[in-house]
Amino acid sequence: MSIVANYLNRDSVIHRLHPLTKLFWSLWVMGLSFLFSDLWSLAALFFSVVAIAAMARMLREMVPVFKGLFFFALFFWAFQVLLIAEGRPLLTLIPGNPGLRITDRGVFIATAMGFRLMVIASSFPVLLATTQMKDLVVVLVEKLKIPYSYAFMFITSLRFIPTFMNEMEQIIQAQCSRAHRLDSRNFVTRFFFNLPLGHSVVDYVGEKGGTDGHIHGNPRFRHWETDVFASL
């Protein structure tokens, strides 16, 4: 998902649009997705987002985003489809039990919800990939009158995402080197084995956060962290 915060430098109509236009576009698309509830409108809306990405000449870079979203939507779909019992039954999972069955209406609604999810999650990456962050911040501050300090915090935090990701990677590798099972394929084990490492990242934030962090240290803060994880 590294693409989410990255600006892709292209020369396209979409890139040249005013940042405010694109901001409103993405909010509008999201709003519409909540207004629509039938399958065809939502599908059309999703493909309009794909079309905009294509116009911005970055379809290739967006493929991983769409792919990820698709699998997420599929998971969501499989879950939804079983919960809707109305409509004509197409398939009953456990014969004799009317609760777990797939109906035509269920398929329709679940598919529509899947599209809605994809629309909501894909319009923002398109905005961020076609608009330079500083342009967006300037617009937020000057046109929408958002206080500068908030806009500054926002832009700075985005700048440090790759740094923290890299730091997290280093920590994971350092623990792997001590036979910690982080390279396990199982998602659940990975999650639980990752937990204690969270605090190293928090420490890191503490250190990077101030220019003076490394001198006086922050033992009290760190201690608290240790206690929290000990209690887990």
Partner: peptide, 9 residues
């Protein structure tokens, strides 16, 4: 640390 003091992209 050059990483920590640069704030802009």
């Amino acid at each position: 640390d050059p990483e920590a003091q640069i704030v802009a992209s």
